[in-house]
Simulated scan of single mutants.
Amino acid sequence: MTSPIQAATIAALSSDRCCWKEATFNDGLQHSRRFVRAYRKVQKAKATTLKDLRCKARLILLTSDEPDSMEASLARDVLTYTGAYA
């Protein structure tokens, strides 16, 4: 069964991919808005399982501006601990 965090993570990742495939900014705007909505939904929800925590870590790495930030480091640690790849 897919949790709300996992569903929102899948929506965010697919809309991010679709956004970069569009030729113009206006074409990618709807995908960008979909990404923001899904990201906020994941951000507000609490992770109750390791799978949910792994999904949150993937989104943090996707949106992190600095790869050496504390958040990105913790996200990599979570993914390493749970056996997932970044």
Rank of each mutant, 00 (worst) to 15 (best):
A57H: 10
S14H: 10
D16S: 15
Y81S: 04
M1N: 08
L13Y: 11
I10R: 15
P67H: 10
E22G: 03
A7Y: 05
K46V: 14
T49V: 03
L50T: 14
T9E: 03
I10V: 14
C18P: 11
S69Y: 13
E22Y: 03
Y81F: 09
D16P: 08
Y85R: 15
K41I: 04
S32L: 12
W20S: 12
Q30M: 10
P4Y: 01
T48D: 09
G83Q: 00
N26E: 15
E22Q: 01
R54D: 02
Y39A: 12
L29Y: 08
Y81K: 09
L59H: 10
V36L: 08
A75W: 01
W20V: 15
I60H: 08
T9P: 12
L62G: 06
D65K: 01
K41E: 01
D65N: 14
T2A: 08
E71D: 12
L74I: 04
H31I: 00
C18G: 03
Q6R: 03
K41S: 05
D77Q: 10
K51F: 00
Y85K: 13
K46Q: 09
H31P: 06
S32P: 07
K56S: 00
I60D: 01
S3G: 06
R40E: 14
R34L: 09
A57Y: 01
N26I: 14
S14Q: 10
F25K: 11
S69F: 02
S73V: 02
N26P: 08
A57F: 07
D65Q: 11
A47L: 13
A8H: 01
